[in-house]
């Protein structure tokens, strides 16, 4: 398996070492390196990659700010020297955490986690429903019944026309699990059912009277998915 990646890291020696590790592994192609979030965002708005090696503390915005602003969810390996970010990493569904400085062996272990995750993602193309764990039972929700999914910290809310279901999960995690033909992320806190959009005004969309924000980063993709004539 060959993964495309970019490195977002302001410590040059760490970025160089990552490049060397990627080359040596023969499994990762480094497309580019950026030393700050804003330059990386420009790239990511125009290109898609499988994997991000992402530092957290950089000049200006943080690595987590970048994850809030990109319109899709590549796998992420955080490269930081601060293990305290582990909780945030979990919240962002980060695949692994490389504490700088790290060895090549540790890099490979990290990469193996990512490839295992990529290989285990089930094809969602024809899946017309999901099961969610709520109130002590597994509840089946048909895709067509779900209006949108909203983040509530460590929980998410599935909203249908007549009911709301709260379950322990994250939007980041759900992005990979829902049928991408029916659903799309429009904001760091919202995944919507595309077929349920009633109208769009400026930076909000409306579904059955519910106002849902559309982030600047996601808006171009939203517009692309609409059948505008």
């Amino acid at each position: 398996m060959s993964l495309s990646c970019i490195i977002v890291e302001d410590l040059q020696v760490a970025a160089d070492f990552l490049k060397k590790c990627c080359e040596k592994s023969g499994q990762v192609e480094v497309k580019d390196h950026f030393s700050n979030v804003s330059d990386a965002l420009v790239y990511l708005n125009e290109h898609s990659v499988d994997l991000l090696f992402l530092d957290v503390e950089m000049p200006g915005a943080t690595g987590f700010d970048l994850l809030d602003q990109i319109a899709y969810s590549p796998k992420v390996i955080l490269t930081t020297s601060k293990p305290e970010y582990a909780y945030d990493a979990f919240q962002y569904n980060v695949s692994d955490f490389l504490k700088k400085p790290f060895t090549y062996q540790r890099f490979i272990e990290s990469l193996q986690k990512v490839t295992a995750m990529v290989e285990s993602i089930p094809a969602t193309v024809n899946i017309d429903h999901i099961f969610i764990k709520t109130e002590g039972k597994l509840v089946r929700l048909n895709n067509d019944d779900i209006l949108y999914i909203e983040s509530m910290g460590d929980y998410v809310k599935f909203v249908t026309a007549d009911k709301k279901y709260i379950t322990h999960n994250t939007i980041k995690n759900l992005e990979d699990k829902v049928n991408k033909d029916s659903f799309m992320k429009v904001h760091r806190s919202y995944i919507i059912n595309i077929s349920k959009i009633d109208d769009i005004r400026e930076n909000d969309l409306f579904i059955k009277g519910n106002e849902i924000p559309v982030s600047k980063a996601h808006k171009p993709e939203v517009m692309k998915r609409l059948n505008i004539i």
Partner: peptide, 8 residues
């Protein structure tokens, strides 16, 4: 930032 540079 300097800390991991020394580490490397």
């Amino acid at each position: 930032k300097i800390k991991p540079a020394f580490g490397f």
